[in-house]
Design a protein around this nucleic acid. Sequence first.
DNA 1: ACTCCACAGGAAAATTGGGGTA
DNA 2: TACCCCAATTTTCCTGTGGAGT
Length: 427
Amino acid sequence: MNPFDKFDRQNNILKGDLSTLTSSHIPENFPHRDRQIGLMVESLSSIMRDSRPSNLLLYGKTGTGKSSVTQYVISKLGEKAPNSILTCYLNCQTFDSPYSILINVARSISDVDSIPLSGWPLDRVYSELNTRIEKSKRYIVIILDEIDKLVEKNGGDSLYVILKAADESKNSKTSIIGITNDTSFTEKLDSRVKSRLNQESIIFPPYNASELKDILEPRVKDIIKENSIEEAAINLCAAIGAQEHGDARKAIDLMRIAIELAIRENSDCVTTSHVYKARDRLETDVLKETIRTLPTHTKIVILSCITASEINKTNMITGEIYANYKDICHDMKIPPVSSRRVSDLLSDLEEAGLITTTMKSLGRYGRTRFIQLNEKEKEMKKYLGEDEEMANFNFNRKSIQTRFGTNDPTEATLDKIISAKEEERPN
DNA sequence: ACTCCACAGGAAAATTGGGGTA
DNA sequence: TACCCCAATTTTCCTGTGGAGT
């Protein structure tokens, strides 16, 4: 059979465009978000009257519609009042320094590309931003996604600078929308920032399964031929999304992948088994992407964890991981970073969900973090093996002897200490 | 009660690399 | 070209700490 036959064979399922089932797609209506939309519109339209700009803070876990609703509302307002609203969307994970934020806001106000990515003193960027704001005479809405990252990284300085810039603009009205999934976010703020930022907040609660179904169903019906999807498949997507703290993004991604799989299998109907397969694939995709985008030294650290765990099985501690890491760097002829730095990289890995660490004190033998790889160890190793940066690492190497430096309690002692500890606290 | 391990993690110093000015 | 300024990243230096050993 000619492999290209597959190409022109009609699929039995799709009648519309599958790309409407991506999380970046902004739909025309948002089930169960009327209240939030109403509040946002109310608040934003008050900037357009001459009243003082009020800043908004949106709370909610991932996939509860914060970003999508924001983009939707902004675009609708833009249609109502063309050429008077200017938006600037920034993800604070990527742009986390005062400098990069100011630059990006300034650039989106007017794209005269005169501000270099580095080199200017901050106050020059600041005054340049102010003149651009005043010149533009438009309403400016700055959306700061994952705004909590700004506080973690440098104590909220960036936030203060940007709020001040917004406050001081005279001719134009500038408003800031902060998006966060950290409900305790405001507690970490310093009071001068808090009063400016926390003027109005809107909460996006997680979706439950039936709400997720209301989201999925109309979108699916638009692009799928009649009777080409089991009701149960939709329900399952909704249920899995609801389990994951009411995550609509996950439910939507699952649905899309399930449909793709069904098409690839050339079946007539999307079934629950497609959804289950989609769930597995989604998981591996996320893991693969997480590992691929890790910085070089972070990759080596996770590699160090993996090779160490192959020998040690359990109970890896920071010192061992670092010693092993240095060995690997030596093998790969890469200069290693300091142990202090590796300590931070381990925290990064924990945040990325690749490892779990527990602080434990071994009394005489110090206090350190115990490191456990997550259950996808084999896959992680495989993806690292495919990574070109890791190409000259010998994946068969085995060498790790360090344990507690020179002052080595025997393995048995350590195990005793640990098991004694675990008996104390069974959970 | 006191010691001391093996780090955690804060703070300051040093390095790196982009950019400006003369 | 030489030299200065700047932000970001890392290193260096440091203080703090839970609990087994003594």
